[in-house]
Design a protein around this nucleic acid. Structure first.
Lengths: 220, 220
DNA sequence: ATTTTCATCAGGGTTTTTACGGATTATAGA
DNA sequence: TCTATAATCCGTAAAAACCCTGATGAAAAT
């Protein structure tokens, strides 16, 4: 049940940690370590020299020369098929969503158990993604944070349906007159709605309305 | 190892499906079904009559009278401690992120196995959240979709750093003169940047810039 | 029954944005 | 080196947005 081993690459400047990873990987004969780099640049160069690119890459977030974010961006262009598992400390929550956005396939805490690392590698290689419980939780709370802010609820409840309608058209880039025509109302009325929107959203111009509305989830 | 059973409530108008769920729940003695409703309103009324609210709620997304979204919103206000597992069909991807946003604790596909349902109930009761592989995948692709759109890359690559800087300030609601002061450049220059932004983002006014920029991920 | 909110409209005035059509420097890429 | 692009700047005039004030009927809430 191990015809083709999973080719794994590591990029981490933290030597001790790297050694640990190597042990974990070498302890299984369905994994094969094909590359080890101390920064993003070294990694990119290394991959270019391999006959076949790795299947899974364990990528440290903080590295000198070229960090995990930059490396992910570039790798996903040249080698989109490589699955990227980001290695991170607990205190780097903010990056998670951003990085998944960039094309990372999973997130792994640096204090994960050997077993969890192995599971993650297999999952990412086979299913194309891996989320630890912790990461799921962060994603969830990250999503919630956006709307949990006090102004959100206020705005949601106080802004009328008609105002949201106008708001949508404003965001689309229509001018007052165009909106008026489309809604069969006078331009004055549209101006009133806009004025009220500015008040309710606590901003002072149209750009602010659009920004706020999107932030508060009033618009999608 | 079963001192306190998990109190489960169901809200689903699909009778047959409901029966199946009941079987699954009753088959384990660490679960107890405390309420069964055919729509959101019936559920809310039912919960009010219970001595103690349920721990976990299996909530159908599509229901008459009051759907899953409305119900989730209201429940999270009055009973924030109830863990909500949304039941859904495969083709309702779009709601997932939106609902998690509203406070749902997990997502369950209606064609899940009995085992998966049980796992989900336990996970949600104990850890406060549950993501099936499928849902994780949707969340991931949902996140990616935002930046994967063709204009995104174009915009990202073509819009200069300075322009993004100006763009941020525009979104904040600053006027041209205020931006000029802040960046120590002439108002005319700011106008030029704005003009270029409009061109590059393919919009015709400031509101459009903000909308586009947020959509394309140029701004956060 | 009364109050509040919504959606509608308006006058009159100021400020900002937008459209049009340039120009100069500096720098990075082919 | 030549070229393209970024970043800076300007004039004029029209269009749109913004500010302040005030009004009306309908619907919803109290």
């Amino acid at each position: 049940m191990k015809p083709v081993p999973i080719k794994v690459a590591i990029a981490d400047d933290h030597t001790l940690f790297c050694e640990g990873l190597k042990l974990i990987i070498n302890s299984r004969d369905d994994f094969r370590l094909v590359l080890e780099a101390r920064n993003g640049q070294e990694l990119l160069d290394g991959i270019a020299e391999l006959e076949a690119p790795p299947d899974v890459l364990l990528l440290d977030l903080k590295m000198p020369v070229k960090d995990g974010i930059e490396t992910t961006k570039e790798l996903k262009v040249t080698y989109p098929e490589i699955k990227i598992l980001i290695l991170t400390m607990i205190d780097q929550d903010d990056y998670i969503i951003h990085l998944l956005d960039l094309g990372a396939n999973g997130y792994l805490l640096k204090n994960s158990s050997a077993e969890e690392v192995q599971n993650a590698i297999v999952a990412v290689a086979e299913k194309g993604f891996y989320f630890s419980d912790y990461v799921s939780q962060v994603m969830l709370s990250g999503l919630r944070r956006k709307r949990a802010s006090p102004p959100a609820l206020d705005a949601m409840t106080k802004v009328s349906a008609r105002e949201i309608e106008v708001c949508e058209l404003i965001a689309t880039g229509l001018t007052t007159n165009e909106i008026a025509e489309r809604l069969f109302i006078s331009a004055r009325t549209v101006e009133s709605h806009r004025k009220n929107l500015m008040e309710k959203l606590g901003v002072k111009n149209t750009a602010g309305i659009v920004y706020r509305a999107l932030k508060e989830g009033l618009l999608r």
